[in-house]
């Protein structure tokens, strides 16, 4: 399987792109030879050579190359690079746990039809996932504002919501797949020969599912990324937000800024001021699009590989 995957050019390109982005994101202060704190600081005003103030944020890409700055004078380029690792790792982690939980729950009782979960799946067809996640996140934030909790606990709870939103549809997929596998003749034989349930699951069911699992995992990563972007627009930030007051004394404008530096946060933070600084929102969105494209190439590679396996 792995050797065949390596032969798929699409898979290799997608995989290398994501790997490079991750490595670059972890080691960019060394690679670009810049100071991390210096390049991520808030830049109040732009000065010319003689020290006169020439502009206030947001700066356009021509003023602050290469990608301009956001409402607070932070450079978008460094924010994007620094946020890449959080974005990718959060998406990978959530997708992984979604798959793990749903396989685990299905294997506890593979014979049941999970009728109560089926109800939820039926309902979630008509309610967009972003709204579903939003109503949970919103009540979490209301709770947090009443009784403050640590950032770590908040992140864990938010990730649990993001995981939980995706689990019911996956369970209904897996229960269908696993039932089909358990109905095969050789499984019945293995049970007749006296093997334990756990052994059968581990030795026969999971290997048969493995290719499907990889495919579903990649698709879940894409869905998580899209969901994160949507939540970013709705100003729900993973890791909570701080309120910063912009504007002058007479017209204070409280603005929520995310504490973690992931891309969805950059989108959400700049979304209200989208007309003033279009580059601040178009850049993270473009990066989202490119990342999703890379993931889709990986998915395509896996699918090609499966098709050649069959024939």
């Amino acid at each position: 399987m792995i050797i065949k995957l390596v032969k798929q050019p699409q898979f290799i390109i997608g995989f290398l792109f994501i790997a490079c982005l991750l490595i670059f994101s972890f080691y960019w202060p060394n690679l670009l030879d810049v100071d991390k704190a210096e390049s991520l600081k808030l830049q109040d005003f732009l000065y010319d050579d003689e020290g006169r103030i020439i502009d206030a944020p947001p700066y356009s890409p021509s003023q602050v190359p290469p990608l301009g700055s956001d409402m607070f004078g932070k450079q978008i380029f460094y924010q994007i690079i620094d946020g890449a690792k959080y974005t990718i790792l959060i998406a990978l982690g959530i997708a992984l746990f979604r798959i793990l939980f749903s396989v685990g729950i299905t294997l506890i009782n593979p014979k049941s039809s999970f009728s109560f979960l089926n109800d939820i799946v039926q309902a979630t067809l008509y309610i967009p996932t972003a709204i579903l996640a939003f109503i949970f996140m919103n009540s979490l934030i209301v709770k947090q504002s009443m009784e403050p909790m640590s950032t770590m606990k908040l992140i864990v709870l938010q990730c649990l919501i993001l995981i939980g939103v995706g689990v019911p549809p996956l369970i209904s997929t897996f229960s269908r797949e696993i039932k089909a596998i358990l109905n095969k003749d050789y499984i019945t034989n293995t049970f007749a020969l006296g093997s334990k349930k756990f052994y059968v699951y581990y030795k026969h069911v999971l290997p048969e599912l493995s290719t499907k699992l990889v495919l579903l995992f990649a698709q879940q990563v894409v869905q998580t990324l899209i969901l994160m972007a949507h939540l970013g627009v709705l100003a729900i930030f993973i890791g909570g937000s701080a309120i910063v007051v912009l504007g002058d004394i007479f017209s204070p404008m409280p603005v929520a800024i995310p504490l973690a530096g992931e891309w969805a946060g950059i989108i959400g933070m700049n979304f209200a001021k989208v007309k003033a600084a279009p580059w601040a929102i178009l850049t993270p969105l473009t990066f989202f699009a490119v990342l999703i494209f890379a993931l889709n190439m990986i998915i395509q590679g896996i699918q090609n590989c499966l098709e050649t396996n069959k024939s």
């Binding site: 109560f116 089926n118 799946v121 309902a123 979630t124 067809l125 008509y126 949970f136 979490l140 209301v142």
Partner: peptide, 25 residues
């Protein structure tokens, strides 16, 4: 039958946030 299952699902979803986080929204 489908409608019943949908209504039950929506009912569960709409009361779940209040149940989980115990806030009167």
């Amino acid at each position: 039958k489908r409608l019943r299952s949908t209504i039950l699902g929506i009912l569960i979803i709409s009361i779940l946030p209040a149940l989980l986080f115990g806030t009167n929204t």
